[in-house]
């Protein structure tokens, strides 16, 4: 426990126990877990980043504010977390620089937890990205942000069903008011330490021809890289001819992704 948390550190999250959280700003010397922050543009990712780290990065009501990667940190229940704010993207499948930065970090940076920030008022479009991230990594938490706006537009999201469908924790939040932030930190902690075991959703609706090609390729991948957690996704990328992934297969770099980071229980579900 951290008895030395500064008073007033939590002016925007009244429900939080200040004893447990300490905002570390950019002063990150050592950290136990890396947390990536992904999401569509304009979903309040930067606001969430600021309330988690105590930093004040500029945010605006514009899609696409964060262009470069921002990093910060916080400590919770004795563990130090490094938080990386990735550029906001609609997808991870296209070829823009932003998407490559986000995708490479989630895949090769191997964050212990990926938080996917979702705009509750545009759930369908945001779930598209969630499904893509869950193909890459199962160690994820979905932050259902902008709940206040959803309420204003008379939308209700059944977060328990959503968590069941996605197989990862779902935390409703309104980051601008600080609502849901303590719960989010707790879930991040649970996934990072392996207390919560995710069973991530996998794409189900691909056409038969694609399904066949993917399963053929997954089989081959299984021979070359046993226990690869995201073989289906790697297969899809190979079918799209992603040069970076081809290189990772050729050099064997992909095998390193199999190893489970120290201090964490194996959290991947089925491969």
């Amino acid at each position: 426990m951290k008895p030395n948390a500064p008073p007033g550190a939590c002016e925007i999250c009244p429900a939080h126990h200040p004893a447990n959280l300490k905002r570390l700003g950019v002063n990150m010397d050592r950290y136990d877990f890396v947390v990536a922050l992904a999401g569509n543009p304009n979903t309040g990712k930067s606001t969430l980043f600021n309330s988690l780290t105590g930093l004040r990065q500029h945010t605006g009501n514009w899609p696409g504010k964060t262009v470069t990667r921002a990093e910060g940190g916080f400590a919770y229940q004795g563990s130090n977390y490094k938080l990386v704010d990735l550029p906001g993207t609609y997808s991870l499948l296209s070829t823009s620089t932003d998407e490559e930065i986000a995708r490479d970090f989630i895949l090769f940076g191997q964050p212990d937890v990926t938080v996917i920030v979702v705009d509750a008022t545009r759930l369908e479009r945001n779930l598209n990205l969630v499904c893509q991230v869950l193909e890459i990594t199962g160690r994820a938490v979905v932050c259902l942000n902008l709940m206040d706006e959803a309420e204003r537009h008379r939308l209700t999201v059944d977060e328990r069903s959503l968590a069941r469908e996605l197989g990862v924790p779902v935390v409703p939040a309104a980051a601008r008011q600080g609502r849901g932030v303590p719960m989010l930190i707790d879930r991040i902690h649970q996934v990072a330490t392996g207390t919560f075991v995710c069973k991530p959703h996998r794409i189900q609706s691909e056409p038969p021809a694609l399904k066949r090609a993917v399963s053929l390729l997954v089989e081959k991948l299984g021979a070359a890289f046993p226990d690869l957690p995201n073989a289906r996704w790697v297969a899809l990328r190979l079918l799209e001819g992603d040069a970076r992934i081809e290189e990772a297969v050729r050099s064997g770099e992909l095998a390193e992704l199999v190893r489970v980071p120290e201090g964490a229980a194996p959290a991947e579900g089925t491969g």
Binding site: E124, N128, C131, H201, S205
Partner: peptide
């Protein structure tokens, strides 16, 4: 087709 599959799931 991949995007269609993703959005079908999302929907």
């Amino acid at each position: 087709s991949l995007m269609e599959a993703l959005y079908t799931d999302a929907a």
